[in-house]
């Protein structure tokens, strides 16, 4: 029988010398780095020297009042549509998980419809809703109506955009929220129930805060998508960032520089969203990372130490 020898050492032994070995050569890395560097330099060089980029005109229009107004509209559309999308998504997700078949079925059909048709088509559809329902009445179904409205005066272009973008987003958000809810361990619901907490209280205080860790990253994705998808409203002639640029270059034919202006603004706005997402994620990571809030500080100190 083989014997296992173990040296007993109640006292911690002195640590032997740190290993100093010759590192393996990695020529592949050097070649790859060189290729990337050459490509990057040539792109920057061409952008700087090709006069057709017309950088001076880019600079001229970057803070043009019409462009800035377009930026404001794009931000407004994104924020309002995402609020509708997230609120609607939570409602649809809770409906989808309901034991009532009719309720969960209704949610399923909503999601099926809005995910199954292009957003562009939906937007144009909302724009022509007046042709389908010229009059909108609010009242008891099949009974008397209390409020009458003309669809074309009620559904202003802003409302059309918000409905189109928000209702479509709700369908996607509901699947994200649902994934978040079912990712929370069953034991959490049981523990809450055993403490006498009701279903809604448990959802609000125990399940949703924990599901946020799963919900936030794809929601950040959705917000970035939304920011760019708002440019679709130009098809119904709503003046967002992209459409205001189109209006300018349709007159002066400075197409390329204005497209660059638009791209710069979209990039700037998505960058802001990255920062926001980082802080929201950190907030909901409470208790899930062993190291606590000191984490960020120590990482920063370590980083400074290195450089």
């Amino acid at each position: 029988m083989p014997s296992i020898e173990a040296t007993e050492s109640p006292e911690p032994q002195e640590r032997p010398e740190e290993i100093k070995a010759v590192p393996v050569r990695r020529p592949g890395r050097w070649i790859a780095a060189a290729v990337v560097a050459v490509i990057a330099v040539s792109i920057i060089h061409s952008a700087a020297t090709n006069p057709r980029f017309q950088w001076d005109i880019v600079g001229h229009y970057l803070f043009d009042p019409r462009i800035l107004e377009g930026v404001r509209v794009t931000v407004e559309l994104t924020v309002v549509a995402m609020i509708i999308g997230i609120a609607g998504g939570i409602v649809l997700a809770v409906m989808r998980l309901s034991p009532n078949r009719l309720v969960s079925g209704a949610s399923w059909i909503y999601i099926w419809f809005f995910r199954g048709t292009p957003l562009l088509v939906q937007l144009v559809f909302w724009n022509y809703i007046g042709a389908l329902y010229p009059r909108i009445d609010l009242g008891i179904p099949f009974g008397p109506a209390f409020i009458h409205a003309n669809a074309n005066t009620l559904l202003k272009p802003f409302l059309v955009c918000i409905l189109g973008l928000g209702l479509n987003e709700a369908a996607y958000m509901s699947e994200i929220v649902r994934a978040g809810i079912i990712s929370v361990d069953e034991g959490q619901t049981q523990a809450a129930a055993s403490l006498g907490m009701g279903r809604l209280l448990t959802m609000r205080r125990i399940v949703l805060p924990q599901s946020m860790r799963v919900i936030i990253p794809p929601t950040g994705n959705e917000t970035i998508s939304m920011l760019k998808n708002t440019s679709l409203v130009s098809v119904i002639a709503y003046v967002d960032l992209f459409y205001s640029a189109q209006l300018i270059y349709s007159v002066n034919y400075r197409t390329i520089p204005l497209l660059i202006v638009v791209s710069i603004w979209y990039l700037a706005m998505t960058s802001v969203l990255y920062v926001g997402q980082y802080f929201i994620e950190r907030h909901f990571d409470r208790g899930f990372t062993l190291a606590d809030q000191v984490n960020l500080r120590s990482r920063w100190l370590a980083f400074r130490h290195m450089s």
Binding site: D185, G187, A192, G198
Partner: peptide
Amino acid sequence: RESEVSRQRAQIGMVFQQFNLFPHMT
């Protein structure tokens, strides 16, 4: 009703094999 079941449960403590503490709270 759910609220009455909750009231009954509030008077009975339960300890689980997997602890089931709320991880997002101290």
